[in-house]
Amino acid sequence: MVDLETAVMTVEMIEASQLGTQAIAAALAVSITGLAAAWAEYGIGSAAVGATAENRDVFGMALLLTVIPETIVIFGLVVSLLILF
């Protein structure tokens, strides 16, 4: 038989561990989507700068296309907030 003190300690440990896992999951959600957005923007940004260098009129559209992958980070952020709260 396990005594009461040990049982309370075990529950506390499990709770702490759950909190830690949540924090790690939230961090991963933001960081991985952040890296993915960076990777996507890297190619789009290079092309956008190239297109703008040739034709200034496309600057607005090029900027818009460059930031579209940012939406992935927003999804990541929402997911991480849902995990935490």
């Binding site: 890297y42 190619g43 290079s46 190239g50 297109a51 040739e54």
Partner: peptide, 16 residues
Amino acid sequence: VGPSPYIYVGTRLRVR
């Protein structure tokens, strides 16, 4: 490092 300069030049030349 990486394909960035190639993407940049490739796009410029496509526009041209």
